[in-house]
């Protein structure tokens, strides 16, 4: 077999292609144009198709990118809106809980009267023994006005300004409230201790048990009598003439939402 060089093959194919093209140039199609032009069109058609599709693809990609950008922005706005709605939902839930608490307070508390002022707790610092409450309208509450909740005694007003009022909780280091047992046989003085309470001046021979709820006696001239103030959690005898008694506030100061301010209560007025 004669060795056929690559150049010979290529040259032959080139010549044949030229001859075929020349023959196609002589043949006319139905519309009178040379057949080779229709071949060219057939060759270029995929290219133009690809180019057209490429253009459409680029357009689609561009539109997709724009849509994606809009979707991202819209998604971000929706997230913000969702966060706002969640925050509003939390606030509404909190308001609803406060309303329920207020209703319980109105139903259960004998001190709820026309002169009592409901206030919403907006800030409290339990270790420091302070709380800030806010009333629905601007009202001036006298200093030392008691603040109670459905659970018991909360503290007293130390400052009032417009709708904002600051309370000194009974757990405050400087707070004190006169208390007694429900049967009024044992009396003492609840002292704040920065989150905990202690009951002072209870004689060693006094009959007092743990879990006893001490009520305010009104002997301090600040708090009205009969309000649950503290619950005894620890009793210890020492060499001192008085028992060493530990207690916790009767009211749940951690979760209290609504308090009742009693500006018109006085020892004399009752």
């Amino acid at each position: 077999m004669v060795a056929v060089s690559r150049s010979l093959v290529l040259r032959t194919l080139l010549v044949w292609a030229a001859l075929e093209t020349a023959a196609a140039w002589q043949v006319r199609t139905a519309d009178g144009s040379p057949l080779v032009l229709s071949w060219l069109r057939a060759l270029l058609e995929p290219v133009s198709w690809v180019a057209g599709r490429g253009g459409e693809l680029a357009g689609d990609v561009g539109r997709g990118a724009g849509d994606l950008r809009r979707v991202v922005v819209e998604n971000r706005l929706l997230r913000l809106e969702l966060e706002a709605l969640r925050a509003r939902d939390l606030l509404l839930s909190e308001d609803l809980a406060a309303q329920r608490e207020l209703r319980l307070l109105a139903r259960d508390s004998a001190l709820f009267s026309a002169t009592a002022i409901a206030a919403r707790c907006i800030f409290r610092d339990l270790p420091a023994g302070t709380m800030e409450v806010r009333t629905a309208t601007e009202v001036q509450v006298r200093r030392d006005a008691p603040a109670v909740t459905s659970g018991g005694l909360v503290g007293r007003v130390v400052r009032s300004e417009g709708r904002r009022h600051w309370l000194q909780l009974i757990t405050h280091q400087a707070a004190a409230a006169a208390v007694q047992t429900p049967d009024a046989e044992v009396q003492g003085l609840v002292l704040g201790g920065g989150g905990t309470l202690s009951v002072a001046y209870v004689p060693r021979q006094a009959r007092l048990e743990r879990e006893t709820v001490l009520l305010s006696s009104g002997g301090d001239g600040i708090f009205p009598p009969g309000i649950p103030t503290a619950r005894v959690v620890r009793i210890r005898e020492t060499s001192e003439p008085f028992l060493e008694i530990g207690a916790v506030p009767a009211a749940d100061l951690q979760s209290v939402r609504v308090v009742l301010l009693l500006p018109e209560w006085s020892r004399r007025g009752g």
Binding site: W16, A23, V27
Partner: peptide
């Protein structure tokens, strides 16, 4: 033939 070209291809292919 009606067109010039295919004959060149055919005859050169046969010759090869």
């Amino acid at each position: 033939e009606p067109v010039v070209g295919p004959g060149g291809i055919a005859w050169s292919a046969a010759a090869l």
